[in-house]
Amino acid sequence: MTELPLDPIAIDVGSLVQRTVASLYSHLVTRQTGRAVRLAIEAQLESAGARSLSLIDFSEVTILDFSCADEVVAKLLQGHLHRHAREAFFVFGGVSEPHRDQIEVALHRQALGMVAETGPGRFELLGQKSPDELAVWTLLEERGLLTPEDVAELLASDEQRAALESLVARRLAFRSPITGRVHALSRLVEHLSGS
């Protein structure tokens, strides 16, 4: 068994929209469309095994409305957050400025967070997060991974260590069950994102 029992998969939302609504356009609008796209994503995840990491790519999506942000982003995350039998991690790629407001609203509404690639090679933690969570996530993002020794050395306060545990529990970071090292999700999808 390797340290990372994950096989990242890439899911292109733009092509799912076109297939779902039989349109030439990649506008992710209407709740019905969002629901269909989410179900299509979940169908792909069914074959991904008990532990999965998915790069959900929005780069071909031009318009994203609030209803679809709720259906595709918030409900997808919410639906997998507390499923222990199937541990799913997500990174959202191609999240550009025209998507951001709708996604932030949907995430905050459900107290969710997500890791997003908001530019080539630039990842951000969107949605609800505490200052400690953001600080620890930023450190993790810079280093790529934190060993148990790093945690003892770099996370000085109980609050920071609790923030790391919270990021893992919220599936905003991945802890290897083999080594206990915590990985930045961005590094785990690096080979898929093209950045």
Partner: peptide, 19 residues
Amino acid sequence: TSVVPFSVILSEVCQNIIE
């Protein structure tokens, strides 16, 4: 860039009818 929020307004307000 306002074409995006404008389109989102139209989408949401029209969905009000369907939903």
